[in-house]
Simulated assay, not measured.
Amino acid sequence: MKKYLLTFALSLISLTAFAQTDYEKVMSDKIAKIENCKSLDEFQTLANDFDRIGKKETKEWLPAYYAAFVYIQKGRMLMRDGKMSELSAQANIAEKYLDQAESIAGKDNAEIHLLRKMSYSLKMMENPTERYMTDGMKAMEELRKAESLDPGNPRIALIKAEDTYFTPEQFGGSKTKGMEQFKDALAKFTTYSPKSKIAPNWGKAEAEYFINGAAK
Rank of each mutant, 00 (worst) to 15 (best):
Q44C: 01
L46Q: 04
L46W: 03
L46A: 11
D49L: 05
D51A: 03
K55L: 09
E57T: 04
T58V: 07
K59G: 12
E60R: 14
P63I: 01
Y66H: 02
A67R: 03
A68I: 05
F69A: 12
V70A: 06
Y71H: 13
I72S: 07
Q73C: 14
K74F: 01
K74R: 12
G75R: 00
R76M: 11
M77A: 14
L78W: 01
L78Y: 02
M79T: 03
R80F: 06
R80H: 05
K83T: 01
S85T: 08
E86G: 03
E86P: 00
S88E: 05
I93N: 11
K96W: 00
D99F: 04
I104Q: 08
N109C: 14
N109V: 12
A110T: 03
E111H: 15
E111A: 13
I112Q: 10
R116V: 05
K117G: 08
K117I: 00
M118Q: 12
Y120N: 15
Y120D: 13
S121Q: 10
L122R: 01
L122T: 01
L122E: 00
K123N: 04
M124E: 15
P128H: 02
R131G: 12
R131F: 15
R131P: 08
R131A: 14
M133A: 08
M137H: 09
M137K: 15
M137A: 14
K138I: 05
K138V: 06
M140D: 15
E142R: 10
L143R: 06
L143P: 08
R144N: 09
K145Q: 13
S148W: 02
L149W: 02
L149E: 12
L149K: 06
P151E: 08
P154H: 05
P154C: 14
I156V: 10
A157W: 03
I159L: 03
I159C: 11
K160T: 06
E162V: 09
D163A: 10
D163E: 13
T164Y: 10
Y165N: 06
F166V: 12
T167E: 09
T167K: 13
P168G: 10
